[in-house]
């Protein structure tokens, strides 16, 4: 069995979550051949050495003659590679790039695709892709009748790990002539957003409507900086303009898995829970002791979140 993994590159380096996905592919199928695929501009060079350590056997490099930031049309190139090598499974990270490329490849190959999975398993040589649906209220495990069986996998589903290897990374360079769609990127401004900021945070302080206003969120950010943590918010807080969209945690925002997640004035709507429930330790502060957030927390404090923030700011100042 061959599992193909899409490798994402940024500024000449492999994104950390691509290592995570390579390791995940290896973890779910120790005997499979794990291959990476990367689409690279003709003039770019990347160090691929570590892929082997984290579980990859092989890497396909597709060379193109386009600009590095134009990733939107990689789907066409990858379709050609997949046709050629026929992997049983093809997985991508659930980044915007992965979620744009995947349906193009799947519809070109007439196969199925499961989006934004939080768990992959191999059962009887078939890929079982599990994902939250219905705004996180229901989990669905999905199978695919055709190959390649495709899935995009949510960031932070699995952390990279080293595997003992007795082979080195086999690299195959290839080129396909693709007629790209007529589309021009006239400007690009790199903005990493919190997507990666929050992803790597060890402590996250998230605020909900219990913080009442923008001032409450300013205090939350102040506390976060004192603690060396990152501030974030719920969908409602974002919709009310209390915090920027890029710091939204939940179903339609970012999924995070910090060591400590502090929820300030968050009631615990399910679409928020799905974005943080895999955090190591969850601490909730809310005035309503029946708030659903406490059902998903290890530690609870029944108190006004704003007051607790003031208290913590004083403590951390000293």
């Amino acid at each position: 069995m061959e599992i193909l993994v899409y490798i994402q590159i940024k500024n000449g380096e492999i994104e950390d979550f691509s290592y995570d996905l390579i390791s995940y592919a290896r973890e779910i199928s120790l005997n499979a051949k794990i291959s990476g695929v990367v689409v690279l501009p003709y003039d770019s060079s990347v160090n691929f050495e570590l892929l082997n350590k984290f579980g990859a056997d092989k890497l396909y490099i597709i060379r193109t003659d386009k600009k590095e930031f134009d990733k939107t049309q990689n789907g066409g190139y990858i379709t050609e590679l997949v046709k050629k090598i026929n992997p049983e499974i093809f997985i991508l990270n659930s980044t915007t790039e992965g979620r744009e490329i995947a349906p193009i490849v799947a519809s070109s190959l007439n196969t199925g695709l499961t989006a934004d999975c939080t768990k992959l398993e191999i059962k009887d040589n078939k890929l079982v892709s599990t994902r939250p649906t219905y705004g996180g209220k229901l989990m669905a495990s999905i199978l695919c009748k055709k190959t390649p069986q495709m899935a995009t996998v949510r960031i932070n589903t699995f952390k990279k790990k080293e595997f003992e290897k007795n082979n080195s990374l086999e690299i195959e360079e290839t080129h396909f002539d693709i007629k790209e769609k007529e589309l021009e990127i006239t400007d690009f401004k790199e903005e990493t957003g919190c997507f990666f900021e929050l992803e790597n945070a060890r402590i996250i302080l998230a605020g909900g409507m219990g913080l009442k206003n923008k001032e409450g969120f300013e205090k939350l950010k102040h506390l976060a900086s004192l603690m060396g943590a990152k501030a974030a918010g719920t969908r409602k807080a974002v919709e009310n303009g209390f915090i920027e969209k890029k710091y939204q945690i939940g179903q339609t925002g970012t999924t995070v898995t910090p060591d400590i997640y502090l929820a300030f004035g968050i009631s615990g709507a399910i679409h928020h829970i799905v974005g943080m429930e895999n955090s190591k330790k969850i601490i909730a502060i809310n005035t309503d002791k029946n708030a659903p957030i406490f059902n998903h927390s290890d530690i609870g404090v029944v108190a006004d979140a704003n007051g607790v923030i003031d208290f913590l700011i004083e403590k951390y100042k000293n």
């Binding site: 996180g136 229901l138 989990m139 669905a140 495990s141 999905i142 009748k145 399910i270 429930e277």
Partner: peptide
């Protein structure tokens, strides 16, 4: 090509 093999309620094992 895809079909739901099983659907279930998300698990939650935390005790506050």
């Amino acid at each position: 090509p895809t079909y739901v093999y099983k659907a279930f309620k998300p698990q939650n094992n935390r005790v506050c």
